[in-house]
Design a protein around this nucleic acid. Structure first.
Lengths: 340, 340
DNA sequence: CCAGCCGATGTTTACGTAAACATTCGCTCA
DNA sequence: TGAGCGAATGTTTACGTAAACATCGGCTGG
């Protein structure tokens, strides 16, 4: 590797300088109580003097644990994933755990399998998986048996510990809000078919309409992108009976707003629009977007709690934890003009 | 920890089953050439049978390297940071390196110092720092001497290896574009004062105007958020002489668009607006935003290249690598009405 | 006053791997 | 034909830490 590779300072070095045994250094390093004050001071002084740092590899080898959690996901380009990851990182750090990121380039079973195989050799005590679960069907068998798993964005509560936003409740709130304003029914733009979150939102939208005895328009399918929302919005703008649109995320809602604007239909005068996520920019859309707020920080927090609890107990858990959502009403929704 | 903690399969176990020494297992595991075919097969078979996985802690301890890069940053909520991180993760994975994420909750020297101290004990061979460099002045001394550093979003090229977007060139392109359209001068909304990227963009904006012999309006200060852009936009909307605005990022430009819309000033009819970043949503703003495209993927790639090169050579490098930008002209800019 | 106990510290050992060195054996070439 | 070489594999050792066990005193209580 290098010529400048003078061996790192080890406990033995500190011990020699402090005139104690390396075991005493170990005890000081770990805050063990049975070291007397003066000795402790000597050791700490020697540590400072030499710039000693514990070697985490040796520590991990000895203790059999890495104090590290792996996070495996496809992309960080979606707000949700980044925010969740950030929350995970923060909470893990607070618990003294490090985060190792395992990116999966393409969402195929093969590449997921590859990621899990790498993971098997990686120094992690637990894994948080942020992806649709059918993709990891073949994969989890390749995990070392003692690695604990928590899954986000999935309905695999029967097999894993799952944490997720309460998609159904959020979508229900969105539809109910629009119906209560007086809209006859609510159109819907879904996310990509593979997405669990998307199909859950679609299902809840459908149920809410059916429960209210309303017609269920054929949903249009997007891919989370603003551009796909724009395309769907253009089609909906053609139909004068469409007065209320629920887009499965804020980005697609942004595209819808632009499509309606381009077609000369006013929001919320002619058409009301609701999104999902409550990204920071949503309040600056034209007009400011009514949307379902997701608490990504809480999702991340519960993920970390979940893995740590499983690591601690040494056995996997099952079941789903849902994080509540909250409808944020801004200016993109109103009573329909015809009904007024 | 747990009752189910039956020791992991080690080389010794594989060796026993295959009827060879553990050293031979090691050689097979590392693809060493001097193992004969039949022996290799036996070992591989035993590995499969037992589900053997190398213990990365032991491996790291023995080899003195972790094949891991630490990434330290404040927040993932900015598009730029997430995208850069994603690119870093992908390229690191391609090189067989893992990524450890070190989040810093608040941008104070103290917490940065804390992060670096933790980092010092962490199993990393190199570090990529995504933050303004003055914050780590006190910090780097706490790093073990053999840990290599690459910095993003900073001008510390004299002390570290720095990779960054060519902020100056991008801002220059934005201003030049507006002047060439016939605008008398260009207003500017900056990012937060602590941001290196922001001050670099502001500086280049000023220089471009001065070079063209134009008046330099007093810039307004934002904080990257759409809301701060909205506030600044409201003020600029009051001034009829303001026909061209360069916002230091797309989110603030979004706020500006809404402010102008709210005040009845048309874009680009009355006022032209340019942003910076080219976030995916920018093409769906109303109107689609002309903006400076940043190649975050390339920034991430060069960061990884940089650390790996330093790790390989075993010595730090200096100097700055700039990643070019590109102006993406959409519909938010036009020749000013008065000049037409 | 001394047995015994406990607090403070030292010694030994093991974690899993891989480099360095040792051994074995078949084959080549003088 | 046997010295010598090299390929294949085995043995020893060290990486840095921390658990387990060992030791050494001084203090307490009967």
């Amino acid at each position: 590797m290098s010529q400048s590779k003078q061996r790192r300072i080890s406990m033995a070095d500190v011990a020699r300088l402090a005139g104690v045994s390396s075991q005493t250094v170990s005890r000081v390093s770990n805050g063990h109580p049975s070291v007397i004050g003066t000795t402790r001071e000597q050791v700490l002084k020697a540590m400072r003097e030499l710039g000693y740092r514990p070697n985490s590899a040796a520590r991990a080898l000895k203790r059999g644990e890495f104090r590290t959690i792996g996070v495996i996901l496809f992309t960080l380009s979606s707000t949700g994933n980044s925010r969740t990851l950030e929350a995970i990182a923060n909470h893990a750090a607070a618990e003294g755990y490090a985060i190792t990121l395992i990116p999966v380039a393409v969402p195929t079973q093969d590449s997921v399998l590859g990621a899990f195989t790498r993971l098997g050799e990686l120094a992690v005590d637990g894994v948080i998986v942020i992806m649709e679960v059918h993709l990891l069907d073949a994969a989890t068998v390749t995990l070392p048996p003692h690695v604990q798993v928590v899954v986000v964005d999935s309905d695999a509560g029967d097999r894993y510990s799952v944490v997720d936003t309460d998609q159904a409740d959020g979508a229900g709130q969105a539809v109910t809000h629009l119906l209560e304003l007086g809209h006859e029914t609510v159109w819907h733009i879904t996310g990509p078919r593979e997405s669990f979150a998307s199909s859950r939102r679609e299902q809840a939208w459908r149920q809410a309409l059916e429960a209210a005895g309303r017609a269920v328009p054929t949903p249009l399918h997007g891919d989370w992108s603003a551009e796909s929302g724009y395309q769907a919005g253009l089609m909906m703008a053609e139909d004068p009976s469409c007065t209320a649109i629920f887009a499965a995320n804020d980005q697609m809602a942004l595209g819808v707003l632009r499509a309606l604007h381009d077609r000369g239909r006013s929001v919320p005068g002619d058409v009301s629009v609701v999104g999902f996520d409550d990204i920071p920019d949503a309040s600056s859309f034209i007009p400011p977007l009514t949307t379902v707020h997701q608490d990504f920080a809480e999702v991340g927090r519960r993920c970390v709690q979940g893995v740590l609890r499983q690591i601690d107990r040494g056995e996997p858990e099952h079941g789903t934890t849902l994080v509540p959502t909250r409808l944020v009403v801004r200016e993109s929704t109103a009573t329909p003009r015809v009904a007024a």
